[in-house]
């Protein structure tokens, strides 16, 4: 029998590290400095992440912008069918990492990479990879909504159009399914042939999500999808992300830590180009293994 139960139980996880409070003060001060000085640093990846089936695996990944190294030996599995959030202070490399996944950094001449990213078993970094084909396997949504200057309908079916799909029935089916999936069908079903630009910002962003899921991507990449939206539109997008979970694997970059906590299953904390800690969101926000993660999620720096 349990008599005087603790009000707040420790969360379950397989912690091998000591909890932040138990770490010696010396170590507590030095770890961030060590990173800043460029010392080798092993990411702490929780066991429960390792047990998940991966859609994407980032392996020993390094990236340089010219002389400046922006990502350092990132090793990170991205679980299938789950929402994974990348958080960290500005300049920590989270957007850079996200853009590497669909090779958008190819567009920058000075970028040099080392290491590999594997999407469902296929390397995406090989020189021979057809980048256009690769990008069809992922959907990407950016900070600012970017509907094309065409009708709502054409916006959504665009990925099928470029694949040469002409069957009206197929296009209409995909359009409806994607708009429903993006929780915007009821708002636009009677105006599918109006311009996508006539929608509100929040609707435009959901339209972009509909377009991103129209080709049933293997992974959905979201780069701060709510940062240009008001709180109500943000809440709708957040609900949508929770709805898409399971059917899609989602990797999201967010500056908003509360957003990461609300919508993600897993959270990765990055700092100065390194993956610091990666684990279930509940553990990152209730009982992170590292003092540094604790300091960041509690708003003590960053």
């Amino acid at each position: 029998m349990q008599r005087e139960i603790e009000n707040i139980p420790q969360t379950r996880n397989s912690v091998n590290e000591t909890s932040p409070a138990q770490q010696p003060a010396e170590e507590r001060q030095n770890r961030l400095e060590m990173i800043a000085q460029g010392h080798e640093f092993d990411s702490v990846i929780h066991d429960s992440v390792k047990r998940e089936e991966c859609v994407l695996e980032i392996k020993n990944f390094n990236l340089w912008y010219g002389e400046k190294q922006a990502l350092f030996n990132v090793n990170m599995p991205v679980p299938k069918g789950q929402v994974t959030a990348l958080v960290g202070p500005s300049g920590c490399g989270k957007s850079t990492l996200l853009r590497c996944v669909n090779r958008m950094n190819d567009l920058i001449d000075t970028v040099r990479i080392q290491g590999d990213i594997v999407l469902n078993g296929d390397s995406i970094c090989d020189a021979g990879v057809d980048v256009i084909e690769l990008r069809k396997r992922m959907g990407m949504v950016f900070q600012k909504p970017n509907p094309f200057p065409m009708s709502i309908f054409e916006n959504v079916v665009y990925p099928l159009r470029i694949d040469g799909e002409r069957n009206r029935g197929v296009l209409e089916g995909v359009c409806e399914h994607s708009l429903k999936g993006a929780a915007i069908w009821d708002e636009v079903k009677d105006r599918l042939h109006e311009s996508g630009l006539s929608l509100s910002g929040g609707q435009q962003q959901r339209l972009c999500i509909a377009r991103a899921i129209a080709s049933e991507p293997e992974v959905l990449l979201l780069d701060e999808p709510c940062s240009a939206l008001d709180p109500i539109a943000t809440s709708k997008i957040e609900d949508l992300i929770r709805e898409l979970r399971g059917e899609y694997s989602i990797l999201i970059v967010t500056h908003n830590m509360q957003q990461a906590s609300r919508i993600s299953d897993y959270t990765a904390f990055m700092y100065l180009g390194r993956l610091v800690e990666f684990g279930p969101t509940v553990d990152i926000f209730t009982n992170p293994k590292l003092t540094e993660t604790n300091a960041y999620v509690t708003g003590r720096f960053g």
């Binding site: 139980p9 906590s261 609300r262 509940v282 209730t286």
Partner: peptide, 24 residues
């Protein structure tokens, strides 16, 4: 039966903790 009550209490305590941590 006390064990069942204790287990359920722990489960709810943990979930309510997560709710506070994740949703403020």
């Amino acid at each position: 039966r006390d064990d069942d009550v204790d287990a359920m209490q722990m489960e709810i305590a943990e979930e309510s903790l997560h709710l506070v941590a994740l949703f403020q």
